[in-house]
Design a protein around this nucleic acid. Sequence first.
DNA 1: AATTAGTTTAATAGAGTTATTAAAAACGGC
DNA 2: GCCGTTTTTAATAACTCTATTAAACTAATT
Lengths: 207, 207
Amino acid sequence: MAKKVPLEDKILQVAEELFMANGYDATSTTDIAKKAGCNQALIHYYFRTKENLFQQIFANKFQLILQYIYSDVEENIEFNDALSQIIDGYFNILSHNRKLPFFLMTELVMNEERRKTMREKITTNTQCLNYYARWDKLVKEEVKKGNIRPLETMDLTLDVISLVVFTFQSLPLYSEMFLQNQEEIEGYLSHRKEEIKTLIFNGLKKN
Amino acid sequence: MAKKVPLEDKILQVAEELFMANGYDATSTTDIAKKAGCNQALIHYYFRTKENLFQQIFANKFQLILQYIYSDVEENIEFNDALSQIIDGYFNILSHNRKLPFFLMTELVMNEERRKTMREKITTNTQCLNYYARWDKLVKEEVKKGNIRPLETMDLTLDVISLVVFTFQSLPLYSEMFLQNQEEIEGYLSHRKEEIKTLIFNGLKKN
DNA sequence: AATTAGTTTAATAGAGTTATTAAAAACGGC
DNA sequence: GCCGTTTTTAATAACTCTATTAAACTAATT
């Protein structure tokens, strides 16, 4: 039996940092090896190909998003609470993985194969589908009750995702231009979260 | 005097397509040459470096956005008309340059140097600054008059940009999953435009 | 201490990259 | 048709990148 392998984990961890920061193309196995403090061949010993190593990391990160996004939509929850918790949850998970939206987006848009894998992951993940079904039901009922203006669940979903994801995607640009330090960045993020909630909740009201 | 050079233009045009489709790193001068139907060395003859060629294209595209975004904010325009026209204008220009948001975002986030150039472009473009100042004034007055809820101009601007830009950034993903043909894509885009307008206008109302 | 399985490295093949250089081709004016 | 300029190409230098291979190292087991 293989004993504990510290370098394999180190490679994974370092590769994650570099791939997330610079993307697949701009990260070489040589870079990873250098930062992990090992020989470049070792990466191929453990993962055989760079693509392999990348896919492990990518799958992990994608799963992370998939699991948490709608998990706040519990049974018998109120529509308003669900919506509020989805936005909170989304913001929360991305606050801890700030480069994730940009990373996922880039690699998905750029690579047909990864899109296919993603599609399968989504369509076969019953938990995720259940969550969305529940969410869909909540929205439809709220429209029927006349509490919000008529709209498709997909539109509301896209509205939320657009506003939240773009906040994090553009954060490196925005913070470099307008924010001085970590504290201001945190302030900006929580300010934006409130604005987004206000916009969405207000925007759902009937005229 | 150098006479008309068709290949130089051809290279620029082909390079634009490839850079926009695949990004800087994933586009080689060999690719460009092949698609332009010329020798690879010719690219260096006209542009000396790949980076040079790229920057010309990038600057062009960036200028395009910068010029058109707020140009609809004319003197003495009503706030509602201005906002509506900004969203229309934004949607319109991106409809004709669908890969632009993703392209600009990627290259700006990935490259410090390009961010610096962009910053200078923005801060020295008096026309652009004037437009934004006018827009800022419109928003502030509308808040003061009590016609909309109190909010920063920057927040409204970010709301609009998030919703519009994300629509186009995610279009390749979304259309591959849910849309069958060009007609459906057009339908989706105009539907989203209306939803975004509704969300923004509703979301600005006072509670 | 010797054996063996697992880990790590040095060396290198092979492909692809940007950029340069010198020669060839094309073209306009005489 | 020749000459000078501009355009275009072939060849290649100098890198960098991924992946493989064989050899060296490490450590646990007998």
